[in-house]
Write a protein that binds this DNA or RNA. Sequence first.
DNA 1: GCAATAAGTCAGTTTTTTATGACTACCAAA
DNA 2: TTTGGTAGTCATAAAAAACTGACTTATTGC
Lengths: 103, 103
Amino acid sequence: MTTKKMSAENETCPAQALLKMLSGKWKPEIFRLATKGPLRFSSLLREIAGSNKQSLSVALKELEEAGLLEKVIIREKPLHIEYNLTENGKSLIPIFEQLESLG
Amino acid sequence: MTTKKMSAENETCPAQALLKMLSGKWKPEIFRLATKGPLRFSSLLREIAGSNKQSLSVALKELEEAGLLEKVIIREKPLHIEYNLTENGKSLIPIFEQLESLG
DNA sequence: GCAATAAGTCAGTTTTTTATGACTACCAAA
DNA sequence: TTTGGTAGTCATAAAAAACTGACTTATTGC
């Protein structure tokens, strides 16, 4: 295979990283719901119309890797997992709300 | 062809439209430069490292269709075209700067 | 052990976005 | 009328993002 270079992440624009964290087909809606309270996978799947397991899984992972969400195992009645906003995630709420009000 | 439905634009999240307007590989950088002054196609191509005609063309068209940029024909020495921020575009500068400062 | 609930993963496919290189259209100057 | 600058388009290809349906893993209740 020819050694072709991959997307060299041209981060010349400071806003780009943040925009990338929140953009995509499902991440804005997931983030918005996360600001309301803890998220569960199965609930998201039910509540977000038109979504699907794979895409939500990928989106949640990206939000987690971006440091906006964290996974918590809840050892209760039916053992399950919660996704919560991290401190970093919470710090984005004000600007996210502005985006909402302008959109 | 089977009548398969296309992306039904699930705009349940108010921030989504705005995020989409500004996201992508080149749009953030183009918008940032536009806040500094009028843009010319050939200059963008030179100044944005790693870019290419087709992608810039698509990005400019999307920014234009989103109502953030407008095309102006300049009848001068070498006749050319300028892209300027619209009033709508200018109204996004504050939030864009916040995105930059947080990124 | 067997079924149910929760939270996914995996392989394969389709759709969207981005990239490449050749080509076009307009105007102006020589 | 040929050349040069500016601003693209077009067909095509490659890469990334999103979708589908089958399958997996872990725990609990019977």
